[in-house]
């Protein structure tokens, strides 16, 4: 079997699993209520036909929402013991990691899909510039990918889903806030922390500017987190 096929089988099972339990619907509902309320409650004050406020919320909201999506990916399997069955089937650790990562990513895409209606509504109200909107969604997916990888790593660490959630949330939240809480540092170091911060790169992409540095940042976070997951799985053997 090609590696891609194994990855897809795992992806399909994991993705379907989200919608078997009510958790998926609850998470999506909470996400839509939160973003919808925060966005539209201030939207009419600015009388600007743009989604910038919606996108600027995403890093904080994703810091909490994405770990709830990823927390079960490994923890639940450790807890039930099905991890032993998964690992001893003819698949590689890479297939398992990628399958689970892609399932969480696909879930985030599904979760973002209804928010396109925000953009459509706004476009009726005024002259919406679609460039930043598309940039915003690209940024949201990149951000989602980075946080998913972090959450997957957190889930690989423990069989307790709550702990996996907290670890994932702390890392994601730190990545979002790191450049904001360290304002007292000297200018030279601030630049460094700004570069580590997910929020900074997300804002760049969300403005509609696709800079390779920003894309490279998200790709690096994904790579480091997934590689970390791989090492954790090796360590378990």
């Amino acid at each position: 079997m090609t590696a891609a096929a194994s990855t897809m089988h795992i992806f399909r099972r994991e993705f379907r699993h989200y919608f078997v339990t009510p958790i998926a619907y609850i998470v999506i509902a909470i996400f839509l209520v939160l973003t919808g309320w925060f966005f539209f409650s201030t939207f009419f004050l600015y009388s600007q036909a743009e989604l910038r406020n919606f996108f600027s919320l995403l890093p904080i909201i994703f810091s909490f929402i994405v770990p709830t999506i990823t927390m079960r990916l490994f923890s639940e399997e450790y807890n039930v013991g099905s991890y032993e069955i998964l690992v001893t089937m003819p698949v590689t650790d890479l297939d398992i990691i990628l399958g689970k990562f892609l399932a969480a990513m696909a879930f985030i895409a599904v979760m973002l899909l209804p928010t396109v209606s925000y953009a459509i509504s706004v476009s009726f109200l005024g002259d919406l510039d679609w460039g930043p909107v598309i940039g915003g969604y690209v940024g949201a997916l990149l951000l989602g990918a980075a946080f998913c990888a972090v959450g997957l790593f957190a889930s690989a660490l423990t069989k307790n889903q709550i702990i996996a959630f907290i670890i994932g949330m702390i890392i994601c939240f730190s990545l979002t806030m790191v450049d904001k809480v360290l304002f007292f540092l000297p200018e030279s170091m601030l630049g460094f922390f700004q570069f580590i911060g997910a929020d900074f790169h997300f804002e760049n992409v969300a403005r509609g500017i696709l800079d390779t540095r920003d894309i490279l940042y998200f790709v690096s976070v994904v790579f480091v987190a997934l590689y970390g997951t791989f090492l954790v799985l090796q360590e378990k053997k």
Partner: peptide, 16 residues
């Protein structure tokens, strides 16, 4: 792994 069929102790198959 392709050659082996394995039943772990207490058969922890997917519950859902």
């Amino acid at each position: 792994k392709k050659l082996i069929g394995y039943l772990p102790e207490s058969a922890p198959v997917y519950q859902d």
